[in-house]
Design a protein around this nucleic acid. Structure first.
Length: 476
RNA sequence: GGCUCCAUCGUCCAGAGGCCUAGGACACCAGGUUCUCAUCCUGGUAACUCCGGUUCGAAUCCGGAUGGAGUCACCA
């Protein structure tokens, strides 16, 4: 049997990092088993649909370096892969359930439903449909249908049944049918609900393994009931634990920070670093490696080894991984990845000299600007800081003598520059840490920078002299 | 609140009855390298939620408590 997995996002906005992590798992598991990974768009909610979201979902998955074998733009043996284009299929399947008595028409108005709900809330009973239309006679139904009353189709949930399914990660899960609502299958606008559409499509598209977020675990019994109603074999389930906010409290949410997969790329995280992070959150290879390639992951990943507990989205670890990946990039490749983050007024002729100086200091690509701005922008030196470890007098003298050394330099090379400046420092017996930090501040305006001499070479003799002169304290 | 799931260092993972005075990684702390920062190297702090039971023996099995999470729509 060919393994077939799927990801079924709904186009209601940007795809979440949690969803991307699930894409990765479905993708990897399909690849590992020489199977197929399907992308299906679940656009059954017309009200919440966001214009252009379907396109963006597809492009972000590809930006992360993943791809699907069958999907909206590629087609495949079970096309179409967009649910709004499959409406007749769901209608047909809903009707089938009506004719077998597994589902029934419901003509309740939204107002009545809201009223019932409010009453149940007040009485502190579980808020469920009161099955008002469940026992309508066939003549009553025919009458209402004839008078064009709007209707939905609901699942006739059996009484007193224990519903069982197996989750690859957790094992057997049992739920009593009594707590399951007579779920709406087909909405009054003719669109299916998620529950109907997902079961019908997963079956029709021959999906063998359903790996989806843990939040679906409580609606899985409804799906099981549907499989039973149709007499179809259940797929294999693996409910992937969700991401918790970095503070460890609650499902990762927009309110507590960034959640969209796109925004992490925008912030300068490398897609392969993101993927690596997803890999080792809640799972690890046998030998405890933390850094692994997609191919290695595909080889070693097994959904049943995923930890069953929800995991904290630890940004510190992500930063570490991203730094590792940035340092692994060749300078050419780094330059390419950096393009969107390089300011327009950046002196491109200097980039090949600047890049080696900052590459191991980059945690995120977005930091490039703040790490390199002093190379070409006007700097602001804090004069209090400049004289902090000394006196204005001494600093003034240090700067003047340094200017002389720099001016008389015959060769503008880091080796020569370092040699002469060190010679000066040793001769004058200036305190190393004070003198070099003072110089650093004068040249760059910052306390943390790449090595001073290389930096000065890149900045250029003229600008260095200008900055040194400008830094001389005047109040002596 | 009902239902479901989960429970090892702050975080993630290892541990599938004796190898555990619990191991690795991130973070943190200290030290080394060094002109600062970063990288790199060394070392350190730090956990089996609790209570019962099973067993010669439990982090590992069972039960309960507690805690955390998810979910209860004509949304997915």
């Amino acid at each position: 049997m060919t393994v077939r997995t799927r990801m079924a996002p709904s186009p209601t906005g940007d795809i979440h990092v949690g969803s991307m992590s699930i894409v990765l798992k479905n993708y990897a598991f399909a690849k590992k088993n020489q199977g197929k990974f399907v992308l299906r768009i679940e656009d059954t909610d017309q009200e919440r649909e966001v214009e252009g979201a379907t396109k963006r979902i597809q492009s972000i998955i590809r930006d992360y370096g993943l791809d699907w074998d069958e999907g909206p733009d590629k087609g495949g043996p079970y096309a179409p892969y967009i649910q709004s284009e499959r409406l007749s299929i769901y209608k047909e399947h809903a009707d089938q359930l009506i004719s077998t008595g597994k589902a029934y028409y419901c003509f309740c108005s939204k107002e009545r439903l809201a009223e019932v709900h409010a009453q149940q809330l007040a009485a502190k009973t579980p808020p469920m449909y009161d099955r008002h239309c469940r026992s309508l006679s066939s003549t009553e139904v025919a009458e209402k249908l004839n008078s064009k009353l709007p209707y939905v189709i609901r699942l006739r949930v059996p009484d007193n049944q224990t519903i069982t399914f197996t989750d690859l990660i957790r094992g057997k899960i049992e739920v009593q049918s009594a707590i399951i609502d007579d779920q709406v299958l087909l909405k009054s606008d003719g669109f299916p609900t998620y529950h109907l559409a997902v079961v019908v499509d997963d079956y029709l598209m021959k999906i063998t393994h359903i790996m989806r977020g843990e939040e679906w675990i409580s609606s899985t019994p409804k799906h099981v009931l549907l499989y039973q109603a149709y007499g179809w074999e259940q797929p294999i389930y693996a409910h992937i634990p969700i991401f918790l906010n970095p503070d460890g409290k609650g499902k990762m949410s927009k309110r507590k920070g960034t959640v969209s997969a796109q925004s992490f790329l925008d912030a300068g995280y490398l897609p392969e670093a993101m993927l690596n992070f997803f890999m080792i959150l809640g799972w690890g290879p046998k030998d405890q490696r933390e850094i692994l390639t997609l191919d290695e992951y595909i080889q070693e990943f097994d959904p049943k080894d995923i930890s069953a507990k929800s995991v904290v989205f630890d940004l510190k670890k992500l930063d570490w991984i991203n730094g590792m990946y940035i340092r692994k990039l060749s300078l050419d490749e780094l330059k390419k990845r950096l393009q969107p983050f390089i300011p327009t007024n950046f002196p491109t002729d200097k980039i090949d000299h600047i890049l080696p100086l900052v590459s191991e200091r980059l945690v995120k690509l977005s930091e490039f600007d703040s790490l390199t701005d002093f190379f070409y922008k006007e700097i602001q030196t804090d004069h209090d800081l400049l004289v902090k470890k000394s006196t204005s007098e001494e600093v003034s003298s240090q700067l003047n003598q340094t200017i002389q050394v720099v001016e008389s330099l015959d060769k503008w090379s880091p080796q020569k520059l370092e040699e002469d400046i060190r010679q000066l420092q040793e001769k004058q017996e200036w305190k190393k840490s004070q003198y070099f930090m003072m110089l650093r501040l004068a040249i760059t305006g910052k306390q943390a920078t790449p090595p001073l001499f290389e930096t000065m070479i890149v900045i250029g003799k003229e600008v260095c002299l200008k900055r040194l002169t400008a830094s001389i304290p005047h109040n002596v």
